[in-house]
Design a binder for these strands. Structure first.
Lengths: 145, 145
DNA sequence: AAATATTAGTTGATATATCAATTATTGATT
DNA sequence: AATCAATAATTGATATATCAACTAATATTT
């Protein structure tokens, strides 16, 4: 049995977790009481008015049930409102409150800084290359039987 | 605000989740009632007898509290036993049961196949390059203030 | 139009993640 | 030796992940 920590996917795991913790820490340090996951959802609503929860779940790559629960919290925190969609009563209409709009923009600033810090010293070409490789892995996992 | 899905770290997130789901699905499909996370812990015990829970948490990159709870489940499933360490009563001694040993080895086989499938068509050099880049990101996240 | 299938979202159960607080034990200080 | 600091692990609270079962509404079929 080869050692755990020598595989690419172990490094991928580690990188993902390290970056998440780093990003979350910086958001808290700036005084915002929101998780990265919550912010991602606010951001998808901001970018796509009229979006369904189903579509959000695809964008942020989470389960439908998780989206429901995160949105419940966002409503409780007064970042979002939810109404029944007028023409399809199964759907919901999500709208950012003023507070929600503000925090989405503010945290976006921090996210940009986080990204810059995380990718410091890595050139554009390498980033592109890495993204292509990651896409290839994603493809392999989806197609394979 | 630039679109979410165009950043490297979004792709990283997606890749990580896709691979995890893919790997977990294959383990279930082979008939093993264990999560990848649980298996990783069994594997660290197998590779490092006398390991502490603290060390496990560093290896698998999870919180100490999570490790405690996953280990409780592993004991309930009869894959592990836990005793007090003879010379340091704060520590625990973890030992794989026979069932635990077997499943660790079996799932390792599946993990190897998963890895091969996920990395299919990607040459050694690219893998090394990607690993180095990921390490650099990890370094950036850890050093940065 | 009635029966059936599909779709959007919710809920329940269980596992895991994270942070903070706590316990028990050991190590270091004086 | 008594006090204090550090360490190993657990526990509580809350957020999230995942799967399956479910409700309500709309679309499709016959």
């Amino acid at each position: 049995m080869e050692k755990l920590n020598n595989t690419l996917l172990y490094t991928l795991d580690k990188c993902f977790r390290t970056y998440n913790q780093f990003a979350q820490r910086n958001v808290r340090k700036a005084g915002y009481d929101i998780t990265i996951d919550q912010w991602l959802i606010l951001k998808s609503v901001a970018e796509n008015p009229n979006i369904t929860q189903n579509d959000i779940s695809k964008i942020v790559f989470k389960d439908n049930a998780s989206i429901t629960r995160i949105i419940q919290l966002l409503i409780k925190q007064d970042f979002l409102t939810r109404e029944i969609h007028p023409s399809d009563r199964r759907r919901v209409n999500l709208t950012l409150t003023e507070t929600g709009k503000k925090i989405t923009i503010d945290v976006n600033e921090i996210a940009l800084q986080n990204r810059a810090a995380a990718l410091k010293g890595i050139d554009e070409e390498s980033i592109k290359l890495m993204r292509d490789l990651l896409q290839k892995v994603i493809g392999n996992c989806n197609n394979g039987s």
